[in-house]
Design a protein around this nucleic acid. Structure first.
Lengths: 203, 203
DNA sequence: GTTTATTTTAAACAGATTTTAATAATTTTG
DNA sequence: CAAAATTATTAAAATCTGTTTAAAATAAAC
């Protein structure tokens, strides 16, 4: 562990803030609560991060950076289409299962200030689909799959993976699932999404 | 029109707040702005609604109530499966196109306080899928479609419809679309989603 | 060991929402 | 149709935000 001084308090603040933001929602936690839960003086908040908004941004970019590379690699890997789709779904659901509030957290940030492209840039790098698009086109030309609009298909794929995590609470309430049943539902989803996508691609 | 007294100012506040919330995002508009734009005294804000939070809740439930019935009717209508799915997609996208910030607005509220089941109840009534589920099972027994888990399929269907509206900004940024091109993309989505779902159901 | 830079602190600021308590208007009712 | 009771409106004060300031403690450099 670092010495308490300097960078350590900075990290402590980010950790604490992240937990609170995820647990309660960004605008339901005040800077005073963050500082006190982190055990540091309120002013250090603005000493290290210039504002709460900026703190949020740094936490956000951290999240993306931590998980982004895995996702990006798969999409550009040299791998048969069906295997790639399966791997992509599984890796993504792994990440979201481990950090189940990541999606609503990111969505709320996108919603918060969509006009600020800077934040979008971080997310954007996640979705370099050129290789994947070419693969879809190529397989269609070979007659192995039905012809589809690659952009639409990609958006569909991430919708199927991500959206259920955005409405997790709603699904649980709707189907009256307990924690284990909910986990099972999201587990089952791996296969369901894969089957749905692959079956839709049959020529 | 109602007399200015009583209910009229209440409604005026809700209307004004709703427009501002949708245009600027919930936490980027203050109660002063709402009150002044609505032309009423600031305190009436808290006279009619106890808090900004509660005002938000009432606007939210109103939105659901306004559009909910259409959506619900289609799902329970007596209609061939393929036609029902097509109608459902189109009706939903119609609503979301007319009110393009509805999804992020609703999602942020779900994220805001997922613990409060009261808010979920309003959304929940949207998704009475019993008729639809039975229809899926029945068609599978007849061999007309592939067998699928109805709950998973329904979640997939709404994911495909709703999620793109949640990440509209991101899609636009990613594909560098202008307003018209974005509208076209969402138009094209009607057919894409329908084809995807129906093709995936082929036996 | 004095100077310099970094980190921490307490107090105050400007902005927001919410509450209070008093006043005006409307409706109820005897 | 007045008196009472309820409902609507207002201005001012109280409370809670995020942020700033300026001074104090600590660590690093010369």
């Amino acid at each position: 562990m670092d010495t308490k001084h300097g960078n350590a308090t900075r990290l402590k603040l980010m950790e604490t803030a992240r937990e609170l933001f995820i647990a309660k929602g960004v605008d339901r936690v005040g800077v005073r609560e963050i500082a006190s839960k982190a055990g540091v003086n309120l002013s250090l908040m603005n000493y290290y991060f210039q504002s709460k908004e900026n703190l949020l941004e740094q936490i956000f970019e951290q999240s993306i950076k931590d998980n982004g590379q895995k996702i990006r690699q798969i999409l550009n890997a040299d791998m048969p289409l069906d295997q790639k789709i399966k791997t992509y779904i599984n890796a993504y659901i792994d990440i979201l299962t481990e950090d189940p509030l990541l999606v609503p957290f990111v969505l709320s940030i996108i919603h918060r200030n969509a006009e600020q492209a800077s934040r979008l840039k971080a997310v954007h790098t996640l979705y370099n689909t050129e290789t994947f698009s070419n693969q879809l086109k190529h397989e269609a030309e070979l007659g192995n799959i039905r012809k589809v609009d690659p952009e639409q298909f990609f958006i569909s794929m991430i919708s199927l993976i991500l959206f259920p995590f955005a409405i997790k609470w709603l699904i649980g309430y709707r189907m009256t699932l307990n924690k284990e049943q909910m986990a099972q539902f999201l587990e089952d989803r791996r296969e369901h999404v894969y089957d749905l996508l692959m079956n839709s691609l049959r020529p």
